[in-house]
């Protein structure tokens, strides 16, 4: 199997999310697309960090663990930050969607054209 196959599958997942953002009319589906694309981005960074046969980046007090046997810990730390920020933006998008539903009575973005004061 190709050495880049996980990256390609991850890119396909990202494309599904972007397709939902571009093509769907329902605002909840657009939010789901944003969430899926964000998951694919996080997954790509963790895939890049993986070392074949490596172990997680935690030392032990009872056994000797060489630093060379570990996976790359830096993307893990950055993805931790990215996941929490993703939850914050998702929550804000959902709040906006609920308010839009309360104002217009629909989730369809093509029917939200007229502005009401």
């Amino acid at each position: 199997m190709n050495a880049y196959m996980p990256y390609v599958l991850c890119m396909i997942l990202f494309s599904i999310g972007v397709y939902a953002i571009l093509a769907k009319r329902n605002i909840i589906k657009i939010i789901l697309g944003v969430v899926i694309a964000e998951y694919a981005g996080n997954l790509f960074l963790i895939l890049v960090a993986y070392k074949a046969g490596g172990r997680s980046a935690i030392f032990s007090e009872t056994q000797v663990i060489l630093p060379d046997s570990m996976v790359d810990p830096l993307p893990h730390a950055l993805v931790l930050t990215s996941i929490v920020i993703g939850l914050a933006t998702t929550a804000f998008l959902i709040a906006l969607a609920i308010r839009l539903y309360g104002k217009y009575g629909t989730f369809d973005i093509t029917r939200m054209r007229e502005l009401r004061g």
Binding site: I46, Y50, S56, A57, H76, V79, I83
Partner: peptide
């Protein structure tokens, strides 16, 4: 599976 337990818990 990719040996990132902290990220898995947060996820």
């Amino acid at each position: 599976l990719l040996k990132a337990p902290d990220v898995a818990l947060t996820q």
